[in-house]
């Protein structure tokens, strides 16, 4: 009888493995937490898209909860994302853009065509700020709290559902902290 039970061990191992692997099926392999969560927004010193002579740094992001959106004229999903960003701005969220690996003329033309929800746009033609943020594609969005700490990270484009389901609740949560 005891020996018989031993024969069930492989079946048990198989069942445990099957549960794990089945869970793996519904995971998104490209979804990873940003390495910068709960850390300070990286230091930078760059000009703005609007004005080559105006310099901004990380102090731009302290004082209130801010949504930092990394975009570029070359990025097709960024265009699809603009209506959602405009809605967020309309609903009182402070947005700062990072124009990533772009030219000034193209970036400005993009905002003229698709609207400008950003209070200010940091111009990052070399992608140096993007690199320090661990950005590996646009669009990416970071939520920065009033102390300048990164609290939430969204890879890829923000869908209309994401606005209601994740972005606005996160903004609300970190405003009340």
């Amino acid at each position: 009888m005891k020996r018989r039970l031993l024969l069930l061990i492989p079946l048990a191992i198989f069942a445990i493995l099957a549960v794990f692997l089945y869970q793996g099926l519904s995971l998104n392999p490209s979804a990873r937490d940003s390495a910068l969560l709960a850390r300070e927004f990286p230091a930078f010193q760059l000009s703005t898209l609007e004005d080559p002579d105006a310099t901004v740094d990380e102090s731009l992001l302290t004082g209130q909860v801010t949504l930092v959106n990394v975009w570029g004229e070359w990025c097709p999903t960024c265009k699809q994302e603009m209506p959602q960003l405009l809605e967020l701005a309309e609903r009182g969220v402070r947005l700062v853009g990072v124009d990533y690996k772009d030219t000034r003329a193209k970036g400005q033309a993009f905002l003229e065509e698709f609207g400008n929800p950003f209070e200010v746009n940091v111009f990052d033609p070399e992608g140096s700020l993007g690199f320090d943020l661990g950005v590996y594609g646009a669009p990416e969005t970071f939520l920065v709290d009033a102390e300048g700490i990164i609290r939430y990270h969204h890879t890829g484009y923000i869908t209309p559902e994401d606005v209601e389901r994740t972005i606005l609740p996160e903004v609300k949560k970190w405003r009340s902290e």
Partner: peptide, 8 residues
């Protein structure tokens, strides 16, 4: 690199 892109 880990600081920016994670252990990944």
């Amino acid at each position: 690199m880990i600081d920016r892109f994670g252990e990944y």
